[in-house]
């Protein structure tokens, strides 16, 4: 646990040193704020104290930002050879993966924390459904965890950050768009399975304020799958043909 935290702290400080963290936080608040207060369903016009437009736009922002955040994690270490330095210290492969995962997740939490003023202002303006807001945040958090673990995996298979970014984006396109779109054109089991794989359907059900175990299990198992794949990519160095 301690080793995970040492690495996570180092990763976080390199996010802040390289300005990545500031850019992500500022752009995120800017875009989310723009859509929440003005461009989306303008809450002053609709006169409804909800954060629906915030929860509608945030997954799309994360769709771009998370790959940008994770692309560096392993690809740069693979490129410069520091991965060898790291893995020959008294730290296990899993501790390295968890360390990087935790660092990305903390950065996401920091970003979300900056959107709390939106919540507080709307609360102040009217009668907000607190349950729906917190369930919505939980949904975003779980989705981010799943998407981060995919990003770690795509970063671990290459030594090129651009490739890592694009691969994560491709995975994102499937979970954000394609599964949802295809689900509409299939009926029966295929449609249900595709719908179950879509991030959007799970986020919508959680945004309504309903926390369903199936949604939790979906995101958690996707996260674990991503981390296991990352571990197998790291362990590949041990396999000889």
């Amino acid at each position: 646990m301690n080793k995970i935290w040492i690495l996570a702290r180092k990763e976080l400080s390199s996010f802040f040193d390289s300005l990545v963290a500031y850019i992500i936080v500022i752009l995120f608040i800017g875009i989310a704020g723009l859509f929440t207060w003005w461009l989306g369903n303008d809450i002053f016009l609709s006169r409804k104290a909800t954060m629906d437009s915030f929860f509608a736009i945030t997954p799309w922002i994360l769709f771009f930002f998370i790959p940008a955040m994770t692309m560096r994690t392993f690809a740069e270490e693979n490129n410069t050879g520091t991965i060898e330095l790291l893995l020959t210290k008294a730290i296990t492969d899993w501790q390295v993966i968890w360390g990087k995962f935790v660092a990305c997740l903390i950065l996401i939490l920091i970003t979300f924390a900056f959107t709390l003023p939106f919540y507080i202002s709307i609360w102040w303006l009217g009668n907000i459904d607190h349950g729906a807001v917190w369930a919505g945040y939980l949904g975003l958090f779980l989705m981010s965890a799943a998407y981060i673990s995919m990003g770690l995996f795509t970063s671990s298979v290459t030594n090129n950050q651009i490739v890592a970014f694009l691969l994560a984006l491709i995975a994102g396109i499937f979970f954000h768009f394609i599964f949802g779109l295809l689900a509409g054109s299939f009926s029966g089991t295929t449609g249900e399975v595709l719908n179950f794989l879509s991030f959007t359907s799970h986020l919508q059900s959680m945004g309504g304020g309903v926390i369903d175990t199936r949604d939790l299990l979906f995101f958690i198992s996707l996260t674990l799958l991503g981390l296991v794949l990352t571990e197998s990519a790291l362990a590949k160095r041990n396999v000889s043909d």
Partner: peptide, 14 residues
Amino acid sequence: MKKIGYLPENNPLY
């Protein structure tokens, strides 16, 4: 592992 000091080839550094 903590009793081994290792300088890898090409000296990778952060």
